[in-house]
Design a protein around this nucleic acid. Sequence first.
DNA 1: GTCTATAAAGCGATAGAC
DNA 2: GTCTATCGCTTTATAGAC
Lengths: 190, 190
Amino acid sequence: MARLIAERADALPGLAEVFRDHGYAGASLSLIGAATGLGRGSLYHFFPGGKREMAEAVLADIHGWFEQAVFAPFAQADDPRAGIDAMMVAVDRYFRSGQQACLFGAWGLGATRDPFGPAIAGYFQRWIAALADALERGGVNGEHATTLAQDVVSGIQGAITLSRALADPSLFRATLGRLTARLYTALAAV
Amino acid sequence: MARLIAERADALPGLAEVFRDHGYAGASLSLIGAATGLGRGSLYHFFPGGKREMAEAVLADIHGWFEQAVFAPFAQADDPRAGIDAMMVAVDRYFRSGQQACLFGAWGLGATRDPFGPAIAGYFQRWIAALADALERGGVNGEHATTLAQDVVSGIQGAITLSRALADPSLFRATLGRLTARLYTALAAV
DNA sequence: GTCTATAAAGCGATAGAC
DNA sequence: GTCTATCGCTTTATAGAC
């Protein structure tokens, strides 16, 4: 039977959970050890740079997941609507209907942004560019496509914030539905 | 000349700044002391309950400010458009065009929500109710008014998240403008 | 009301045995 | 690769003088 933790990558889900729930400052090595099942020795073996390197690895891992699960479908799909549908399904599952925070969004709000600023900005820029590209290929005017893509990514972040604050997953799903409708309307109007 | 720090309330702005920038876990008494100009003795004199009581006081203070500066204008104004305009101006100033986080939104995302859940939910419920009420009085159908109010409050939170992540205040202001236009359109359609 | 000293606990990180 | 022991520092909170 394979070991539960045989390489760095196996520790990333547990790390992400702790960072999401407690923030960078609140994520102590004790909490991280409990969530990953790794002792201090193993943690520093996999991440010689300590907490900072763990955080960088988690951000890169999440960005990578979005790259293949959310951004890539836009480039592949002939019909932008297929990419949009795939994005909304993936977003609803990943953020657990708004009950799980976005690490990039949350860390961008405070001083934690400072060390990770480029990674945070890069994630959102990639997301907006992928969506805007699909809209443009669907015939939406370039400037309008970018504005609309910003509105949708911003709208998703807001829906996470509000639906988690109110502990109401249905609010998140309803907002995703309205954002989808706005994208479809723009595509139908060309 | 009046003392700079003569009562609890004088410490709240500094406290709010530290909590916003560093989160609850990251807000150490050293940072708090530096931001407020108060020593440990004074801090525990004003807030016997320690950090927890400081956080509760800050949240109550911010909610109170929004009550008088944002929510109240809705009830007073005859024309809902006047309330909307006042809200957007106050929001842009308070959140510094999205470069300053919303403490309620940010704390709702992680485990810090647990101890302050009711205060966080109450703030957003009040905001949505005040806006929905104004829309209803303006003739917008009740269900639509609530949905629209949720969209706007959610949209503002998303605009803070995205425009801070991208360090782009103009994105925040442009989003506020589009949200205002949506509210005006709904009011014009009745 | 503000100060300093201090307690007790937890922190991130390191070293070395295995 | 995992463990334990430990370093040096910071944390929250308290006590007592002024």
